[in-house]
């Protein structure tokens, strides 16, 4: 079983590494990171700017990539399914075989400039790992969501793409807008816990909050608000957000696996 899994992952890697755009994806991050170093003078500034890009684009690109993979390789999928291969093994092989190279391209692209600008030594090392870790986790989550959308709308590509874009738009922009609206509409009520809870449900917000906690704690602590500052100011906040992010990591993978097991191809 593991041998089969390995073969599938390896094949995906080989195929993808030959795909030029994936190299382009890595190169974009390389150029971006290096440019950030040159224009901002390094340090936390680079990581914060990089994290902005990560939070905006990685979910979109990963999800489109996940769904595109399902649509593009339907025949390949069916070919593999006719082989003496377990569906679960196949699923995990495909999933890691897809999200792995995407994550690798992202990590390679960002890590190289971070290394040669010395961000992996001393104090910024932990922050660097945090930012890259969030990028990697978001890649997995949203590739998984792309898989889910591709499998759920296997025969209806336009719908699949449309809904995926809407999901991204919702999670990246609209959700936060709604929460802001909620805060301003119900500001007089004790909604702190509720609002903190709501942000914990959105993986992009989770990534963003982890970055806030690391880089902007001084701003956050400048305001009163018991639940808010208690939660954000403590290790508990960091741990809860990380835990929720891991839950999010599992959710799309599990949904995808369920769909994949039951699906008629």
């Amino acid at each position: 079983m593991i041998a089969v899994y390995y073969q599938i992952v390896r094949n995906e890697f080989q195929t993808l590494l030959r795909a030029r755009w994936l190299i382009g994806y890595g190169l974009i991050f390389l150029l971006l990171t290096d440019t950030l170093f040159r224009f901002t003078g390094g340090g936390a500034e680079v990581l914060v700017s990089l994290s902005n890009v990560i939070l905006l684009f990685i979910p979109l690109i990963s999800m489109l990539y996940g769904i595109l993979f399902i649509y593009q390789s339907r025949d390949y999928l069916e070919l593999l399914l006719t082989q003496p291969v377990n569906r679960e093994t196949l699923y995990w092989g495909l999933f890691t075989g897809i999200s792995g190279p995407l994550t690798s391209a992202f990590l390679a692209g960002t890590t190289l400039p971070l290394i040669w600008h010395g961000n992996f030594s001393g104090e910024p090392a932990m922050q660097t790992v945090l930012v890259l870790g969030i990028g990697a986790i978001l890649t997995f989550i949203f590739t998984g969501l792309g898989f889910v959308m591709g499998l759920a709308y296997y025969e209806e590509k336009i719908k699949g793409f449309g809904y995926s874009l809407m999901i991204w738009l919702f999670m990246a922009v609209i959700y936060d807008g709604l929460i802001l609206l909620l805060i301003f509409l119900l500001g007089d009520y004790p909604i702190e816990t509720g609002v903190v809870g709501l942000t914990m449900l959105n993986p992009i917000d989770l990534g963003r909050i982890l970055i806030l906690l690391e880089f902007d704690i001084s701003a956050l602590m400048g305001y009163t608000g018991a639940v808010f500052s208690q939660f954000l100011g403590s290790l508990k906040g960091m741990l809860t957000a990380s835990f929720m992010l891991v839950l999010w990591l599992i959710l799309p993978m599990w949904l995808g696996l369920r769909l994949f097991r039951k699906k008629d191809f």
Binding site: V173, L180, T199, F228, L232
Partner: peptide
């Protein structure tokens, strides 16, 4: 106005 909205710091919104 609403300190709680700080939780949306760095959001695209």
């Amino acid at each position: 106005k609403e300190p709680l909205s700080l939780i949306m710091l760095r959001s695209i919104m």
